[in-house]
Amino acid sequence: MHKKVDILLIALSSPIQIGIYEDKQLIDSISSSKKSSDVLATTFNDIFNIYDVKRFFYANGPGSFMAIKVAYIFLKSMSILKKIPLFATDAFYFNQNRPIKAIGKLCFVKINSEIKTQKLETVPESNFVLPNVLDYNEFSTISTPLYSIGAVG
């Protein structure tokens, strides 16, 4: 009998991080510097061979739009095919609400639950961390990527 787990995917930048959670506790993690499109299918195949996946969670932005699209399409497809619910939250949950680089000196910032762009003189590193405990209250069943964030350019 396989352990029943939740899977969390952070594919906003390199490295891609996958957390495996049992009873909300992080029990294993996988990290890859490869492109999402090159690693997700084989990695998730390995996960399905070892675990019984109950729920998918992922960071739906902001970050690399292409990486977010690939992650969403992959997880949404797996969600439909395997009848596994998909939940999402913004990237600020994974970086202690620090600014996230957009382009040049523009960064995404979250102020009073609203995500917008702001020019910063010093652009911080975007380090995303898998939480040790998964807080379901931080996630929504509205899992579409955050494409409606203000244009950058």
Rank of each mutant, 00 (worst) to 15 (best):
M1T: 09
H2I: 00
H2Q: 09
K3S: 13
K4L: 07
V5S: 03
I7K: 01
I7Y: 02
L9P: 08
L9G: 02
L12D: 04
S13V: 06
S14V: 13
P15M: 12
P15C: 07
P15F: 11
P15E: 09
Q17E: 11
Q17T: 10
I18T: 04
Y21Q: 08
D23A: 11
K24F: 12
K24I: 06
K24T: 11
K24R: 13
K24C: 10
K24P: 00
Q25E: 15
I27E: 06
D28R: 12
I30Y: 15
S31M: 11
S31W: 14
K34H: 08
D38C: 01
V39P: 01
L40H: 03
A41W: 10
T43A: 07
T43I: 15
N45A: 13
I47C: 12
I47A: 09
I47H: 13
F48E: 07
F48Q: 03
F48V: 03
N49F: 09
I50C: 06
Y51I: 11
V53G: 01
V53P: 04
V53K: 02
K54R: 12
K54W: 00
K54N: 09
R55S: 08
F56E: 02
F56C: 07
F56T: 01
F57H: 09
F57L: 07
F57C: 09
A59N: 08
G61N: 02
P62E: 06
P62Q: 01
P62F: 06
G63Y: 03
G63V: 06
G63D: 03
A67K: 11
K69Y: 12
K69C: 13
A71T: 05
A71M: 08
I73K: 12
L75K: 04
K76P: 01
K76M: 06
S77R: 11
S77T: 15
S77P: 00
S79A: 10
I80S: 10
I80H: 07
I80P: 01
I80F: 14
L81G: 06
I84A: 04
P85R: 02
F87Y: 13
F87G: 05
A88G: 10
D90A: 03
F92A: 03
Y93K: 11
F94G: 04
R98W: 00
P99Q: 05
P99N: 07
K101H: 12
K101L: 13
G104K: 10
I111G: 00
S113K: 13
K116P: 03
K116L: 10
T117W: 00
T117S: 02
T117R: 02
E121Q: 13
T122F: 08
T122I: 15
N127W: 00
F128C: 05
F128I: 06
F128T: 03
F128S: 04
N132I: 00
N132P: 00
L134P: 07
D135E: 14
D135W: 02
Y136E: 10
N137W: 01
F139C: 07
F139Y: 11
F139A: 06
T141K: 15
S143Q: 07
P145M: 09
L146N: 08
L146S: 04
Y147F: 10
I149M: 04
G150Y: 02
G150K: 15
A151C: 00
